[in-house]
């Protein structure tokens, strides 16, 4: 991850973006190839590894664990909801700058962003999302599933007591630009890969409940509402234009960065502006619109890929063949 760029390089990249030829020959709205594999970590409930050709390498895992429900002391909200807890960590091997405490800011920034978009379990965090403060956005209207999509009520086992907690952990193994998009793609793939064991609740009377987790590997539930999970498109404003999937050097030339979170129906689920520069209102609207269309295309293609892989694995299992994942022995 370079942190410095020379004025001549900056000028070259800026003019290149202007005439629609980026340093690696792509045009402004071009994504690099994405390499994706799900189910790479067997200890998790669901996992995915996403690589963007040219460097970025992200491993996302989802672990479902049972824990107490979190009730908001002011509103009394959340008694009947499960939780999602996100965490992002940059491996020091990804870049020299991540060593020691170097990655703390980046970790925090991405974790916050993920939590705001995905963990909409309390109303207070819901209103603090960037999406609802912009006013112009059309956040998801259904109360049961906020912008995060995942139905948290379904994750509750005994209201007021026990629920499933989904720990979403992203590990950045290599840095080659456009982390945010890769993480969200990985999260979606990992959630699609996640299976939650079924539970059986027994009513003991007097408001006492007991539950049992069925340990049949076949009899599991997918995460409900996963199709409505948003995905992120990071738009980098360079000069008067904006590009997607910026390389590390392009990120250094970025004046302003806009992260647009959008779900499959094209609803805006979150918006975050980064870097120092400003964005003209007209360009802002154009960028949001672009992000929305791009996001929908991305979701469609990502889902096709995830489904194809899941189907292939299922077909193998039915034939009684072992499902081999390449994991880290692949390129």
């Amino acid at each position: 991850m370079p942190s410095l760029i020379s004025p001549a390089e900056r000028d070259y990249i800026l003019k290149g973006v202007e005439c629609n030829i980026r340093a690696d020959g792509r045009q402004r709205p071009d994504y690099r190839e994405v390499i994706l594999e799900t189910g790479v970590v067997s200890q998790t409930s669901g996992s995915a590894r996403v690589r963007i050709a040219g460097g970025t390498d992200v491993l996302v895992s989802v672990k479902a664990e049972i824990g107490p429900v979190q009730v908001d002391p002011e509103t009394g909200d959340g008694a009947d909801k499960g939780q999602i807890i996100c965490s992002v960590e940059c491996a020091p091997s990804a870049s020299q700058q991540f060593e020691g405490r170097g990655a703390d800011d980046l970790n925090n920034e991405i974790t916050q962003m993920m939590s705001r978009i995905l963990c909409n379990n309390t109303t207070s965090s819901y209103t603090s999302t960037a999406a609802s403060t912009t006013g112009s956005s059309t956040t998801a209207s259904r109360q049961s599933s906020g912008p995060g999509g995942i139905n948290l009520q379904k994750l509750c086992i005994i209201p007021g007591q026990q629920c499933w907690i989904l720990y979403i952990d992203a590990l950045i193994l290599d840095y080659g630009g456009n982390l945010m998009d890769a993480i969200f793609m990985g999260t979606r793939a990992a959630i699609f890969d996640t299976r939650i064991p079924k539970t059986e609740v027994q009513d003991l009377g007097d408001g006492q409940f007991e539950f049992e987790v069925l340990d049949d590997a076949e009899d599991t539930d997918p995460v409900e509402g996963r199709e409505d999970m948003p995905i992120c498109i990071t738009l980098n404003k360079i000069g008067a234009c904006h590009i997607v999937d910026a390389s590390p050097l392009e990120e250094l030339c970025t004046e302003a960065r806009l992260v647009v979170a959008v779900n499959r129906s094209g609803q805006l689920c979150g918006l975050q502006k980064g870097q120092e520069g400003g964005i003209e209102p007209s360009l802002l609207l154009e960028m949001i619109q672009f992000g929305k269309t791009m996001g929908q295309t991305l979701i469609k293609q990502l889902d096709t890929k995830i489904k194809a892989e899941a189907d292939a694995d299922l077909a193998k299992r039915q034939r009684g063949e072992p499902v081999h994942k390449l994991g880290f022995f692949a390129q």
Partner: peptide, 13 residues
């Protein structure tokens, strides 16, 4: 609108 290509990993050899 440009396409985004998704691929599966391939063995190293």
């Amino acid at each position: 609108m440009s396409e985004i290509a998704f691929y599966s990993p391939v063995p190293r050899s």
